[in-house]
Amino acid sequence: MDFAFLSGMLTQLLKGLPLTLNLGMLALAGGFGLSLILNLMRTTRVGNALASAYVFAFRGTPLLIQIFMIYYGLASFGFIRHGFLWPFLREPYWCGLLALILNDAAYTSEILRGGLRAVPRGAVEAARVSGMTRLTVMRRITLPIAVRQALPAYSNEVISILKSTALVSTITLMEVTGIARAAVSETWRAVEIFLCAAAIYLALSLLVTQLSAWAERRLSPWQFGETP
């Protein structure tokens, strides 16, 4: 095996890691914010229908087509080409990030909804009856319980988004997978290069798994028999 080539390749691929992480984290942050809004919308009937339609559309289609739709498709509209957002929407970075955010929000909102449904009714009632405002009930009781319930599913979503960032290489972004593709077309050593790239993603998801196990133990000690 050509270790010099492998380590050189790994160094080269790692140059794409900042962009991968940047896209992944911003997508998660944006997606979480949007998923909160989607769940708030669900309190009204019209909002609920809209949120359901959104989730249906984004979970029912491949992320790849969502990326292409935003990057190539939106430019079909004159008002977008002449609109104030065009400086952003012509950039592959912003298009890729937008697609990742919209996609993540659909999945995260369902995860959050599951968590919210798992909050015991009695716990909320006890909070209301103690005189808390709706906001305090949300902040002190509902959200903490819901977030902790949703944590295992959410950690899967974090891994899934980190992996999904690989797809933006199809619209010319040079994150880890983009660099790997370019290197393959130069050297034709596909096996070594893609295995190197795979190792980077694998390390990332192992890290997320560890972090989430730690967070779970820390955040829901009552399920693990620990005493603070």
Binding site: A166, T177, A180, A190, V191, A197, Y201, L204, S205
Partner: peptide
């Protein structure tokens, strides 16, 4: 296989 992007696996199988 749960930790690696699917597209990389496809690349690996096809180009590799």
């Amino acid at each position: 296989f749960r930790g690696v992007p699917d597209i990389l696996v496809i690349y690996l199988f096809y180009f590799g």
